[in-house]
Design a protein around this nucleic acid. Structure first.
Lengths: 205, 205
DNA sequence: ATATTGACATACCTTTTAGTATGTTTTAAT
DNA sequence: ATTAAAACATACTAAAAGGTATGTCAATAT
């Protein structure tokens, strides 16, 4: 067999994702991304059926990565403390750290990028994009629910609402980041949400 | 002079903005929006130089609308109370109300939509889009700063950070709204931010 | 050594899409 | 009534973008 095809496929996916972050999926032309990847159409159509297939592969890969990342964050937090509330705070801290150190989460959010041109994708791709948020709700929401079984919040909020708020805090940071280029804003937004959680469950009253 | 040209120009802008919300600007083809507006290319190119000009007109109009709306919210809040902190909380309440009643803010945010395909626009359009966030910072941020001169927050946060957090809460709601179609999430996100402000400045300690 | 197959490159085709050229209608002023 | 000009509609053009057809090269199995 010839040289490693999986590597070039990743190369295509990477340059494509970069461009999607910059100009959206529709404006990401094949010529543009193949020029950036220093490849040609022959390479592209060898690895993908068409552009829709690229959209699918992109979101699949991103969803897998996010799932692995989220699960690992929860696991790491669980090894640091038994208190679920502290675990939640630590998880937020991990995400903030990832962003501040230029990790994966500081590059953007493909779910968000897709969300702003949803009508361009077929239902298959759309449901995968939505699944990204669902995954977040499951993983983070589960832990938040545990925390709320132990501690009473000072204001009447549900664990589902809180989880959704955290997701919104993250995605809101992404929007401002996309507009102004500095990922620090994502960390700041999550930092505020962490403050909110701390105040909500503060025992010293 | 013939019939009202300004009305049809608005019609074009409206159907264009709808489509931008649904599929982004790049994927918003002229044929598609003109079909929705029940007009033809003759109409379009009579009112706009080209598609870039449409992008410019859209963001100009949206920026003006937002400015007027924000200013009016602040004014209305100022007539209800003299306490700047309460004014901030009331402003947030107004925005929540606007969303819940299907107001302008429940339709989406053109700044956010543009943010996810920024590279497609020229610098002129980009700076106008950024100006939307700047305007928010000025109008809301000014009021938040007043509030923080009177009350000390329980945690060390700056008025600028708080304003940015509120913007992020709103835009984060927009992202989830775009993904799942229910604008209530925007209100929920802002509601959480309002909780955060209340807890931050709560005197009963 | 040769054949075979995956992994690409190159050149071309086709459709879409922005943009143009030109014609027609409508309104209002004279 | 005629004219002038804005406000469109229709038909066409050019270029961009997605996609195809075909060829070449490299590695491996026989």
């Amino acid at each position: 067999m010839p040289k490693d095809g999986a590597a070039t496929k990743e190369l295509i996916l990477n340059s494509a994702q970069e461009l999607v972050y910059e100009r959206g999926f529709s404006a990401t032309t094949l010529d543009l991304m193949l020029e950036r990847a220093k490849l040609t159409k022959g390479a592209f159509f060898h690895h993908f059926k068409n552009k829709d297939d690229l959209a699918l592969s992109l979101i699949e890969r991103y969803l897998d990565g996010e799932s692995v990342l989220l699960n690992s964050l929860v696991e790491r937090a669980e090894q640091l403390t038994r208190d679920p509330l502290q675990q939640v705070l630590i998880i937020i801290g991990f995400i903030i750290d990832d962003i501040k150190t230029g990790g994966a989460l500081s590059k953007g959010c493909l779910f968000a990028s897709y969300a702003f041109e949803l009508a361009e994708f077929d239902e298959n791709v759309r449901s995968l994009a939505r699944k990204g948020f669902t995954k977040w709700r499951e993983v983070i929401g589960g832990k938040v629910a545990q925390a709320m079984e132990m501690y009473k919040p000072k204001l009447p909020v549900s664990s589902m609402d809180l989880t959704e708020n955290m997701l919104a805090a993250f995605e809101g940071g992404i929007v401002i980041f996309r507009m102004e280029g500095n990922p620090d804003i994502i960390a700041k937004s999550l930092s505020a949400f962490r403050n909110y959680v701390e105040l909500l469950f503060d025992q010293r009253t």
